[in-house]
Amino acid sequence: MKKVSFAEFGGPEVLHLIDAEEPHPAPGEIRIAVRAAGVNPVDWRVREGQVLGAHPIELPSGVGLDASGVVDEVGEGVDGIEVGDRVFGEGSSTYAEFSVLSAWARMPEGLTFEEAAGYPSVVETALRVIREAGVRSGQTLLVSGASGGVGSAVLQIARDRGIKVIGTAGAANQDYLRSMGAVATTYGEGWVERVRELGRVDAALDLAGSGVIRGLVELTGDARKVISIADLDAPRFGVRFSGVAGSVPEALAEAVGLISRGKLHIPVEKSYGLAEAAAAHIDSQAGHTRGRRVLVV
């Protein structure tokens, strides 16, 4: 089978499409014929060797956590899923023609494989950081870097829970944020004052790692009310860096419910072929994403 792999840490140029042996599921796992794989910032952070504590790997290594596809092998002890089922979920080395998943759910009706591949990690992350921020119905959550995949999920989940959201993004994404139910403003010089004029901030999320931690702490008045998933220096300011996933099966179940109720939709901004994985990483690292990027197999 074809698989994206890297044999050394480095830039996107270390990614190569290679011929590899097909994986097979261990007990409690399933294998899918991959139709699409989600491209997440953690993928290029792993490729660069940034997050080895949370994601230890051995080289050479495959790439990717999220995927959608058709079940073609079921591991021992797995019930409720059959060969031929359309699923999306989280596993390992998902930039490939076949991948083993450790957490999955059946795809909701009406969702394409490309769309489905964009949900697993971002929904788990969105649910986790909202919970860790401790924000409740009637309160206001500030989301810095709100137009990407996690931001798109946060805005919609928060709206469904009665939480007001102020989102920052580039000028081109202001209408996009408003369509997700957020009060939108731009980042850049003067952003703290622009947010302050919009009202009280009860908690804040840093989703882009663009040097905003001090401002978020200033706006909330308490570093414990700020959560970052993107700035590895956040703990120096007393801010929690959230990098350890919670229950992916629970997150997928909640995602299915939200999607089925029409409360969650994360658009795919751009699709790439497996051979274009390096280009997908370059675009992901550049930021300014609206929704998700996926590889199509």
Rank of each mutant, 00 (worst) to 15 (best):
M1L: 11
K3M: 10
S5F: 10
P12Q: 13
P12H: 07
H16K: 14
L17Y: 12
L17W: 02
I18H: 04
E21M: 12
P23L: 07
P23F: 10
G28C: 03
I30A: 04
R31L: 15
R35G: 13
N40Y: 04
P41I: 04
P41C: 07
W44G: 08
R45F: 05
V46L: 06
R47S: 00
E48G: 12
G53P: 02
I57L: 15
E58V: 08
D72K: 06
D72I: 04
E73R: 07
E76A: 15
V78K: 07
D79Y: 10
D79K: 11
E82S: 15
G84T: 09
D85F: 06
V87F: 10
G91M: 02
G91E: 10
S93M: 09
S93L: 08
Y95K: 07
M107P: 14
G110P: 00
E115G: 02
P120G: 00
L127W: 15
R131L: 14
E132R: 01
V135W: 12
Q139L: 06
L141N: 05
S144R: 01
G145P: 13
G145F: 06
A146C: 07
G149L: 12
G149T: 10
G151A: 09
A153H: 09
L155P: 01
Q156M: 00
Q156H: 02
I157K: 08
K164H: 13
K164A: 15
T168F: 10
T168K: 05
A172S: 14
A172E: 12
N173E: 09
S179L: 14
T186V: 02
Y187H: 15
E189N: 05
W191I: 14
V192W: 08
E197K: 14
E197P: 05
L198Y: 02
R200A: 09
V201C: 13
L205A: 11
L205W: 03
L207E: 14
G209D: 01
V212W: 04
I213F: 06
V217A: 05
V217N: 08
L219R: 09
G221K: 05
I227L: 09
I227Y: 05
S228A: 11
D233V: 14
D233S: 15
S242L: 10
G243E: 03
A245V: 14
G246M: 12
S247E: 13
A251N: 09
A253H: 04
E254F: 05
G257R: 15
S260C: 00
H265Q: 15
V268A: 08
K270I: 02
G273I: 03
L274Q: 04
E276H: 11
H281S: 05
I282D: 01
D283C: 05
T289V: 12
R290T: 14
G291N: 01
G291R: 00
V296T: 15
V296A: 10
